[in-house]
C-alpha cells in the first residue's frame, strides 16, 4: 500500500543550521498493516510522515501509495489518499467551524468542491451515528464549534475525520502525546477500533514503547534518518521492551543511554 524508497531530506542545506533529517529511509507496507514507529528525538519519525504527506518535497527517493507515484504531488493533492492526525490537537480541526462542518470538509477530501451545500441533512444523520460510536457525547453537539471541545475530544474527532472516507494510508504523528494518560488511552483505543473496523493501513509514531508493542502488527525503529529495525508477524507479538532496547544497541552500535529516558517504558 505504501512504498517509500530511499527518502532523502536535508533542512537548511549549506547553512549553519543544516540538518540531515532523512538519509535513505525505506519502508514497504502491505494493505492492512498497522505499523508503529519509534525512535529518539531527531530520529526522523515525524519527518518521514511529513515526507509521505507531502508537507514539502523530498530531496531524493520515491513515494508510491497504492502503486501511484505521489513524489511530485503537493500536499493538498495527496490528501485524497491520506488520513492524518497530528500531535497538536489544535492542528487537525477548524476551531471556528461546527463539528458537522468539520466532518463534512473531511468527507469531501480529494473531491471537487462546488456550490452544493457544505453539509447536507442526510450527512448530519450519518455523522450523528458515527459520533455516537465514539462514546464521548459529541453526537448531541453537532452544531457546536470545535474550539469548545477538549484536546482529547478534538483528537477523537480528527481521527473520525481521517477515516470518514477510507484512506489508503492513515498517518498518526504522536497523536496522543499532548493528552493526559487516561485520555491518551481512550484515544488509542478508538484508533485501534477504527483501524480494525475499516481494515486500514496505518503508521503511528509514538514515544511510548509499550504502546508501540501492544498496538499494530508491525514495528519499525528509526535512527539518524534511517529505518534501523523492522519487526513484524510472530516476532512482533512476542516482543518485550527489553528486547527492543537490546536490539537497538545491536543495530546502532550505540548504548541506549540518553534515549532510554525519551523512549519511556
Amino acid at each position: 500500500m505504501l512504498n517509500a524508497i530511499n527518502l532523502q531530506k536535508t533542512f537548511n542545506p549549506g547553512t549553519i543550521n543544516e540538518k540531515v533529517a532523512l538519509a535513505g529511509a525505506t519502508l514497504h507496507l502491505e494493505e492492512g498493516e498497522f505499523c508503529t514507529v519509534i525512535g529518539g528525538n531527531g530520529a526522523g519519525k515525524s519527518t518521514f510522515l511529513n515526507a509521505v504527506a507531502g508537507v514539502w518535497p523530498v530531496d531524493g527517493g520515491q513515494i508510491l501509495i497504492d502503486g501511484t507515484d505521489v513524489t511530485g504531488l503537493p500536499e493538498h493533492m495527496r490528501a485524497k489518499y491520506l488520513g492524518r492526525v497530528f500531535q497538536d490537537p489544535m492542528t487537525g480541526t477548524a476551531a471556528s467551524m461546527q463539528i458537522d462542518e468539520n466532518m463534512a470538509l473531511a468527507a469531501r477530501r480529494g473531491k471537487s468542491r462546488g456550490l452544493s451545500w457544505g453539509v447536507t441533512k442526510a450527512e448530519r444523520g450519518k455523522y450523528h451515528e458515527m459520533l455516537k460510536e465514539l462514546g464521548l457525547g459529541l453526537e448531541d453537539r453537532l452544531t457546536a464549534k470545535v474550539g469548545l471541545l477538549s484536546g482529547g475530544q478534538r483528537q477523537a474527532l480528527t481521527l473520525l475525520m481521517a477515516t470518514i472516507q477510507k484512506p489508503k494510508l492513515l498517518l498518526l504523528d504522536e497523536h496522543t502525546a499532548a493528552l493526559d494518560p487516561k485520555t491518551a488511552a481512550k484515544v488509542l483505543e478508538i484508533t485501534d477500533m477504527l483501524i480494525k473496523e475499516h481494515n486500514l493501513t496505518a503508521m503511528m509514531v509514538t514515544h511510548n514503547m509499550r504502546d508501540a508493542i501492544r498496538y499494530g502488527n508491525r514495528l519499525i525503529m528509526m535512527n539518524e534518518g534511517k529505518v534501523i529495525l523492522n519487526i513484524s508477524g510472530e516476532e512482533k507479538k512476542k516482543l518485550t521492551i527489553e528486547d527492543l532496547l537490546h536490539k537497538f544497541e545491536e543495530v546502532s552500535g550505540e548504548e541506549f543511554t540518553n534515549d532510554t529516558e525519551i523512549l519511556s517504558k
Partner: peptide
Amino acid sequence: TNPAMAKAQGINV
C-alpha cells in the same frame, strides 16, 4: 481558520 487542516483535507489554500 486553520490552513494546515485545510491542506490535510485536500483544500488548495
